[in-house]
Amino acid sequence: MHSDTRTPLPLKIAAIGGLVFLLAPIALIFVYAFTTEEKSFQWPPPGLTLKWFGVTMGRADVWEALFLSLRVAAISTAIALVLGTMTAAAVARTRFFGRETISLLVILPIALPGIITGISLRSAFSLLDIPFSTWTIVLGHATFCIVVVYNNAVARFRRTSGALIEAAMDLGADGLQTFRLVILPNIGTALLAGGMLAFALSFDEVIVTTFTAGNQSTLPIWMLEELIRPRQRPVTNVVAMLVVLVTVFPILAAYWLTKEGEHTEGAEK
């Protein structure tokens, strides 16, 4: 790092300005959740109230959407964890024909615009005669969630020396024992990080979902409908705030986790 710690002032202003730009809109969500204004987005709010929290709690459609989103995210993450780890193991540990193709294949669903993935999957489902259900949503989400688990796992596999696996086998551990006692503990945090990302990605996804959901609504679909045809703005305000709160916790957790990592890394030097 720089030994010169004096920061040029224009840089500081630009950086902090950027930070305000990034955070202010999210902060605004918190204020609007309490506004008494029902029909417009008036600023400053004419008054503050807690009334809309109660109204939101009583809304069955919000709860249904939330539970569907959680269920879909959990199952998609589980599938992505298994498939992503398997693929990462194959790609990182061995060289085989088509290895490059597979890493490209995994990235494709997230590299291509969501609408293309959405339409393709929709046509695949109708071609295979699969009726729309929670499972079609899950399949769609797992398709693009694999890549984040894969990316995290493949990087960790590459850093985990192949000699560790050989050492385990040399000491008498069979394949299962090697996986359970050596591989899993070494890639565990990478899988945790990948899994958290996959969960967040799935929980928030809207574009692919519009094509792979039948008449079920995930929370983002519910939000989208409210955005296009607002029915009850105050309820949307409250839901938006709750969604932000739900996402803040994993970020703070991830921050503390990585901060711990930095400390031990520093201690080794």
């Binding site: 020396s161 000699a163 560790l164 050989e166 050492a167 385990a168 040399d170 000491l171 070494n186």
Partner: peptide
């Protein structure tokens, strides 16, 4: 390897 009563000291040590 895990069925051979033979053990290895690795160049990189490969400690877990």
């Amino acid at each position: 390897p895990y069925r051979r009563n033979v053990n290895t000291v690795f160049q990189s040590y490969a400690l877990f």
